[in-house]
Nucleic acid binder design. Sequence first.
DNA 1: AACCGTTGGTGAGTGACACTATCCATGGTT
DNA 2: AACCATGGATAGTGTCACTCACCAACGGTT
Lengths: 230, 230
Amino acid sequence: MRLSELSERGGVATATIKYYLREGLLPAGRRVSATQAEYGEEHLRRLRLIRALTQVGRVPVATARDVLAAIDDESDQFERLGAAVYALPHGPDPDEADPLTERASRCVEELVAELGWHDECASPPHRMLVSSVAALMRLGYPCGPRELLPYGRAAAVLAETDVALVAESFEPGMTRIEAAVALTVLYEPVLLSLRRLAHTEVSRRRFASEGPPSTGSGAVPAEGAGRGGG
Amino acid sequence: MRLSELSERGGVATATIKYYLREGLLPAGRRVSATQAEYGEEHLRRLRLIRALTQVGRVPVATARDVLAAIDDESDQFERLGAAVYALPHGPDPDEADPLTERASRCVEELVAELGWHDECASPPHRMLVSSVAALMRLGYPCGPRELLPYGRAAAVLAETDVALVAESFEPGMTRIEAAVALTVLYEPVLLSLRRLAHTEVSRRRFASEGPPSTGSGAVPAEGAGRGGG
DNA sequence: AACCGTTGGTGAGTGACACTATCCATGGTT
DNA sequence: AACCATGGATAGTGTCACTCACCAACGGTT
């Protein structure tokens, strides 16, 4: 197919596709003449992956390029998956000068030990965790191993199902790496939105029985909470 | 304290604080003269919350203003919490024209029913969930109720601990709303990083036993995966 | 072979965002 | 009165993710 068809089928403006081509997110089409190129189904698939990563996964374009480059890499499967996931955005690095970072770091180590994990404390996810915990500590919110443990256990359960899903649904090779990265990134908003939904559900249940607010108009007060938001 | 001290204690440039004041994220200090203002501990606390929301929670400044405005609102507790959480970023709205959105929507409804939740399908988290599921479907990745259910259950467990934590640690009132919002936002990167850490851990365990990669240099291949990333 | 609408590639421009640098009029201090 | 830091307002900066304008070449038609 030609660029315009790729644009139409992918739902992305041709100018944007050209931009992705230039930035190296999308491999060039097969040049059929000096001014025309032929794109295949794999280009469409890649284009959709780019859109999913950037629009839904909120991955910056430059980062997406690095992630996709890691997927396409020639090296070992584990290397590629690690490189791709490590290239994902992970927020600001912890501030080494801050004593809270030290406290957060010890807290995270304790948690990881309790979960029986063996992680590299220089890994991006580890540093992301440390800076998040440090931020919570700075605000005085509870975030010791006691509070973190349910999160760690939930993460372990989900990772188990994720890995099983990838292992049973995809052959080892490029599609498996791609699937692992896509599922890592695209299930993140799923998890976050489900947690927010569950917050509403749980607080509705809990506070409806504890006593409705002073408005007293309805028996299920939290259900309508924030209707005006959006 | 004066602006310069607020800047130093909060670790934020004075120019940035002035920007937050202008944008209405931070309430003005008590004017002590035409060219001087006095800031209190509550300003420092608010400043730290702003930084946590924007730096760690990746909340845009304009959105943070809306969230903080909802926290400060005079209305009912449930209204405020709902409004604040609903003001949080939640990605692009689902594309109504896309037939996949319809499929995703039904899938989400099925999941929600199975979990026994009563949610409003126009809520931002619900729409965020639908568009994420639609993106997964578009790429052909499995995301039916079967795959989503473990995520929903994990979310329910976490929401339960979150709400219990907020309810037992904070008095009803402004600090409780603030805590609920802060914990909603700031535990998100915690959860995401733990999941990524768990992915590494689980795949290390699983693939180490299934057979190490061709490099054959170590017994624990995945641990070093992507060391070069970052 | 001339015509002309379409295509692919390039470079510059746009708007949003989150600051940041500059300017200026105080105002307390000396 | 001289001085310099402070607070406030305005305009500028760098980044990001596109988006526009343009141009030469292609290729089907006449």
